[in-house]
């Protein structure tokens, strides 16, 4: 076991996902299969390899500081499950 039940529970909590007992069982098992595979890769000697920050050899991709056209308010809110007076409406936080 590389990842424990408790760690899966913590992950679910941090991501605000509710998992049933069976799902916890299932995901713990699946994650362990994936991580076991990663363990094989970990056996390679990478001491001479620089860490890869990004998969593409690209740097400094940026734009000038110019204002463009965005969405109007109706468009912005049209997919919101609920809105009120031009705001997104969300359930109580605490």
């Amino acid at each position: 076991m590389i990842i424990s039940h408790e760690q899966v529970e913590t992950m679910a909590f941090l991501n605000q996902i509710e998992l049933s007992a069976e799902e916890k069982e299932q995901y713990t098992a699946q994650l362990n299969v994936i991580l076991k595979y990663a363990r094989i890769l970990e056996q390679l000697d990478t001491s001479q390899v620089a860490p890869m920050i990004h998969v593409l050899p690209l740097y400094n991709v940026w734009r000038e500081d110019e204002v463009g056209v965005g969405l109007d308010r109706e468009q912005a809110l049209q997919n919101a499950p609920e809105s009120e007076e031009g705001y997104f409406k969300v359930p109580r936080i605490l």
Binding site: W62, L71, E85, G86, Y87
Partner: peptide, 23 residues
């Protein structure tokens, strides 16, 4: 006015890519 300076990027809509402001 609320939600008038927005676009798919800063609304976090799926599939939108960020592009850094050089300034």
């Amino acid at each position: 006015e609320s939600n008038t300076h927005v676009c798919p990027g800063c609304l976090g809509l799926p599939g939108v890519l960020p592009v850094l402001n050089r300034k």
